[in-house]
């Protein structure tokens, strides 16, 4: 028997009638046609399907869409910088050659953004441990780590600038 699910995806409310077996990754790709979220292993290991569920990075292939009822979801399509262009994490992946074929990249970027939001200045070990659940089979991890470090510095600077601006107005 089909069920109805509603959630907010990249700022827009969505409602759909689905088979309860529908995985969140399937829902995002097939119902919403947001194919930036990739399905690599479909066994909860590779992390290519990582999205933010209520602000936390999760693997969309390892959760039912129904479990996200009422949630706020962010996929790679909803990620952007303060100026509307590339997010600092995306820009850093490009600048530091943190990708080759690009298949793992959306998941890497989504997890890395969540990681940096929780560890403002992550040490290399924190980044490597934090990206444990994302597999890259071509670039290797050195440039990905460099990209995350560079993005973290940029995100911290943006946060400081935003705080100063708010402070100045107050």
């Amino acid at each position: 028997m089909n069920i109805t699910v509603s959630m907010t995806v990249n700022g827009k409310p969505v409602t759909a009638e689905i088979d309860p077996r529908t995985l969140l990754a399937q829902f995002i790709r097939e119902n919403l046609r947001l194919t930036g979220t990739h399905v690599g292993c479909d066994t909860g290991q590779c992390g290519a399907c990582t999205v933010h569920l209520n602000g936390h990075a999760v693997k969309a292939c390892n959760i039912l869409a129904a479990q996200a009822q009422g949630a706020t979801l962010l996929t790679i399509e909803g990620v952007r910088g303060v100026d509307g262009g590339l997010h600092p994490m995306q820009a850093a992946f490009r600048e530091h050659h943190g990708l080759q074929c690009g298949f793992c990249t959306p998941g890497m970027v989504m997890n890395a953004i969540d990681l940096v939001q929780r560890h403002l200045h992550p040490a290399e070990e924190v980044i490597r441990a934090g990206l444990d659940g994302n597999l890259c089979r071509c670039t290797g991890y050195h440039n990905i780590v460099k990209a995350v470090q560079a993005a973290a510095a940029r995100m911290a600077a943006d946060t400081t600038a935003a705080t100063l601006k708010q402070g100045g107005q107050a």
């Binding site: 569920l53 693997k59 444990d132």
Partner: peptide, 9 residues
């Protein structure tokens, strides 16, 4: 436990 995405669920 697991990895950070798993720990979030």
């Amino acid at each position: 436990i697991g990895d950070r995405q798993v720990r979030n669920l």
